[in-house]
Amino acid sequence: MSLVAKSLFISAGILICSNAIAAESTDRHLRILVAGQSISSNCNQHRFGPEAGVFQVSKDGLEIEARDPLQWADCDGGSIWLPLGKRIIESGMAQKVTFMSIGVGGTSVHDWRPGGRAYAKLQSAFKLIEDKKIRFDYGFWLQGSSDIGSDPIRYENALKDLVRELRQTSGARDWLIAIHSSCFGQSDNRIAQAQERLARNALHGYFKGPDINSIEKGLRTDSCHLNKAGQEVAAGLWFKALQDAQRTDHVTEEETLLRFFR
């Protein structure tokens, strides 16, 4: 059968099957690597306690019960990830979820590149990931307000380079990029647009994360970081974004015929 005939045959099959979205496996263990600035770390108001099935990667690379403050992240307050983990377990998306949150407060995207102040931490996380052979399923990027006023093209390219490196080391092909370009009364729509542009590329593993800018002032403690209700709202937004990303990934794989070549 010629190549063209084969492709026609495969595509016709897709026409028939593409609506049959396979159910997500319920015995799944999700491992999520989180990077970004303070809002992605433990710099939010409320410390959440342990949740059944929610784990974190400890400083020495063990998988331990997760509780705020998470070990790898900055600050000693609370995070978004415990309530997100709870949502993931309750929904049946996975039976076990492990976070490794390596955020550094106040960092611009360039701080994660060689010479930047988050670079040493990134390298030490990479060493641990490689030593312990940890493979992540997803990466979350929650950063941007420290880049307010900077050139969006350079922001986008620096983030692309960083994600490329994060992807190679962590094994996380799929990255959810949050929209976050607003803090302390300042906002930069061009950075938000750069984040949206990058996240519009499901084929190459970039997915739209939640719009953190949309979280209202009443859910923040200092017009930037989140209070308890804000943390829960943000977790809900991340959960929705993760669901959307899984759906988009599946549809993309089907419609672009990638499924038949993997």
Binding site: S7, S11, A12, L15, T256, L257
Partner: peptide, 10 residues
């Protein structure tokens, strides 16, 4: 259009 136009039949 199909996603990224990557399906000739669609």
């Amino acid at each position: 259009r199909p996603i990224y136009n990557l399906n000739p039949v669609l």
